[in-house]
Amino acid sequence: MKKQILISGGAGFIGSHLADELLAHGYRVRALDNLSEQVHGPRAGRPDYLHPDVELIVGDVRDRAAVRRALEGVDAVYHFAAAVGVGQSMYEIARYTEVNNLGTAVLLEALIERPVERLIVASSMSLYGEGLYRAADGRLISESERSLPQLKASEWEVRDAEGKILEPIATPETKPPCLSSVYALSKYDQERICLMIGRAYRFPAVALRFFNVFGTRQALSNPYTGVLAIFASRLLNGNRPLIFEDGLQRRDFVSVYDVARACRLALEVPEAAGEALNIGSGRSYTIREVADRMAAALGKEGIQPEITGQYRAGDIRHCFADITRARKVLGYEPRVTLEEGLVELASWLKGQVAIDRVSDARAELAARGLTR
């Protein structure tokens, strides 16, 4: 008998790719998704990209009845349903807290009544805040933040107490959290409460800390989605990608195919139970470099990014993944490079319609004093 897997948020970007991965490996898949207008558009129905073998239940993770119905006959759960976006979370505080924190609590109460073999929750690199740094004398610095006067002076790099610039290095799971946005706080809450309740009620839980996931099916008209999709939306409309600070901040971009495979391994590998694991590519790129590569992939090299020199509340300077632990526990190994992934992404993008709402989002943040 094939195992039945539930993915909350399963009609979305990562969830739908995970569904493909699970179906290809002999699982049955059910998705619970509210088909949010911000993600799926105003007249959202079942997405064309969602595999026909996925059973879709349209419902909200905050709805106890919908969650109980979705859990019937389920062997394992992936909890991906969440409101996503650092900037937006800083003013839609109630919605982010309700969807992410309360939604997770509703799911967990249902799982206490009906335990499953495994719960895998989508966590986020955002909970680290700033990544790990190394001082000139070799000391590792795990707690670092940029001061408001420093940001106002456009001194973007993280410095030590003596004002010396620190070197960013790959961030391992052992780095303490530094929660710099409502979104980060909510993801940390999701991770911790899933591991806590899973341990207490003896259904093994795994938290996967996703870094910057990219690939096909991202919501191009959502100005709070992944940075590559935001850049693509601008470029497809003939507009310059907007980059905060100086564009030299570094991030880890990981293919959605690698993420989907890591998610399957988290279900199948017994040793993953109770773990919180980084899922990234193990490489870093500057935001400016990624904007240039996206433009080149789309044949839009003539559209140069706009370096705004502004900073945004909740943003951090550098953070990229140390994936040593995921390699050891899951046997995870990234297979898709950024270069390879951009070729496929560009091909998919040329058949998409993208409504560029980035300027509206930027104006909203500015009006609330969240960019300076």
Rank of each mutant, 00 (worst) to 15 (best):
S124A: 04
L298N: 00
R312I: 13
G131Y: 05
L111C: 03
K328N: 12
I120R: 02
A170C: 04
V227E: 02
G247T: 02
N101K: 10
L228F: 02
A272D: 09
W156A: 07
E162I: 04
G302R: 14
P172V: 08
I307A: 05
A354D: 09
P223W: 07
D189W: 15
R240V: 02
L18E: 00
D75F: 00
H17M: 12
G226K: 00
D189P: 02
R159K: 10
G215M: 01
P172I: 11
E157V: 13
G45C: 13
E301N: 14
Y78A: 06
I307H: 04
K350P: 07
A205P: 04
G129D: 08
G15L: 08
E271S: 15
R43E: 15
G351M: 08
S8T: 15
K175Y: 02
R114A: 13
G280H: 01
V39K: 11
V353Y: 06
L330C: 05
A65L: 11
E55G: 00
Q304T: 15
I307F: 05
L32E: 03
G12D: 04
E109Q: 15
N100V: 10
D48G: 02
N212A: 07
N100A: 01
G341Q: 07
R114Y: 05
R368Y: 06
I141H: 03
S16I: 09
S123M: 07
V343G: 07
A207P: 09
V61N: 01
G26S: 03
V256M: 01
V227C: 05
L277I: 10
Y224K: 09
